[in-house]
Design a protein around this nucleic acid. Structure first.
Lengths: 226, 226
DNA sequence: AGTGATATAATTGTATACAATAATACGATG
DNA sequence: CATCGTATTATTGTATACAATTATATCACT
């Protein structure tokens, strides 16, 4: 109730609970193996156990918590190893997305991609970190939308969200953000020129390089080991 | 109640409902856009709306149904295009799994993989379709377990389940099952000899070939177009 | 004091009750 | 006869009640 009165009805109560807990886990506000009690969470958000339970079931399926029957729900979170795996998987899948985008991208999407890179170059030269981060996210979003596969789009978006925390942290490295923009440009140009093989390879390398940079800037401090 | 009394308590009521509906969708027992009513499903399985709703939320997250707020739940199912996308994605991810298996596979897993191929060759020569299908599934399971990544393992298993229906259908082609076993052997040998690049390529090609065979044997009849 | 049994409390699992929303039926009006 | 508005019904969303299970505390006994 409390929530429902305050804001417009963008989500159901269950939706709010789900996004709240999910955010708290992905942003690292819970520690690994923290126990989540239905009643406690419900009271914090001013809702009953029902929507909390439904949110728990979704988070369980997503692998962000694990539910022990008749016992409780425990935070699983994301480890340093997970981040590594996600980047290696993303490398392959963003490659596929870039390859497929060659034959599926619309004119509007192509224009937005070019504009995105143009703008990013400008803000990178000025050191505008916030804008760079937003544009970087948007570049990948455009790629996902342009690949022509709802399935791949959904999967990539999910992985992208999972590592959001470490990404925003690492983009504040100015040298990396310049290199990153250059790599975006290579992907865009390959797609524009219709070169599927190069588009795929460029996307592969871009994600691999992003991961290398993350390791260099200290992944271990941001995520638990095991 | 009805269910709980009949069988041992392997799953909660919610678990049963989830697996039941999921199976019905994946096996094609629902048509696309079929509406699922909480009360109806609950009555069919002898449970109340609560566990049904929790199952619905999971299926929604998985993308197998879509829930329109205050309206209802509608089957999304899997289309011919989805099958294609899944095979292309699987090609890349099984490649990764094979590559990672090189440095993560245990002795037991290696032995089981060799034995699996030996047995498959035997049953293929005799035309034992059921055994071949079981062993084929198991081969991929071993690969997933051996890759050393819970995340990749989970994702591959999910995709594998999604296309289970079309797989069992297509393996009844005897020529394909022989070729498939040969491809398994190539993957196994590359892993055994420690050749990461070849392991990845062999797995890529194996999944691509499996898809080509599916197309040849009539994918359109098994799945809706859009 | 330590150990085990039993009672008590806390927590989850499921069913039901109530509220809100959307679909449908029906009748008034032009 | 068509159309709009209203009443009714059906369905989902949420809260609460009860059942089952697990954790905790208490106390007797050695």
């Amino acid at each position: 109730m409390a929530i429902k009165d305050e804001v417009t009805d963008k989500y159901s109560l269950r939706g709010r609970v789900y996004h709240k807990i999910r955010g708290d886990i992905l942003e690292g506000r819970y520690k690994n193996n923290d126990e989540l009690r239905e009643l406690t969470i419900g009271e914090e958000l001013g809702v009953s156990r029902t929507p909390v339970r439904e949110a728990f079931r979704q988070l369980e399926l997503e692998g962000l918590i694990r539910i022990v029957p008749n016992k409780g729900a425990y935070v699983t979170g994301i480890t340093a190893k997970d981040v590594k795996d996600i980047y290696m998987i993303r490398s392959k899948l963003e490659g596929l997305a870039a390859r497929w985008a060659v034959s599926h991208i619309t004119e509007d999407q192509m224009s937005e991609m070019e504009e995105n890179i143009y703008l990013t170059e400008f803000h990178a030269s000025k050191g505008h970190l916030d804008q760079i981060a937003t544009l970087d996210n948007r570049f990948h979003e455009i790629l996902y939308e342009a690949c022509g596969s709802k399935l791949l789009e959904h999967q990539l978006r999910e992985y992208h969200e999972y590592v959001q925390r470490v990404r925003t942290k690492t983009l504040s490295d100015n040298k990396r953000s310049l290199a990153s923009t250059g790599e975006h440009k290579l992907i865009m140009e390959a797609i524009k020129s219709g070169d599927e093989n190069n588009a795929e390879k460029a996307a592969n390398r871009h994600v691999e390089n992003a991961y290398k940079n993350i390791v260099k800037n200290g992944l271990k401090e941001a995520y638990p080991d095991e």
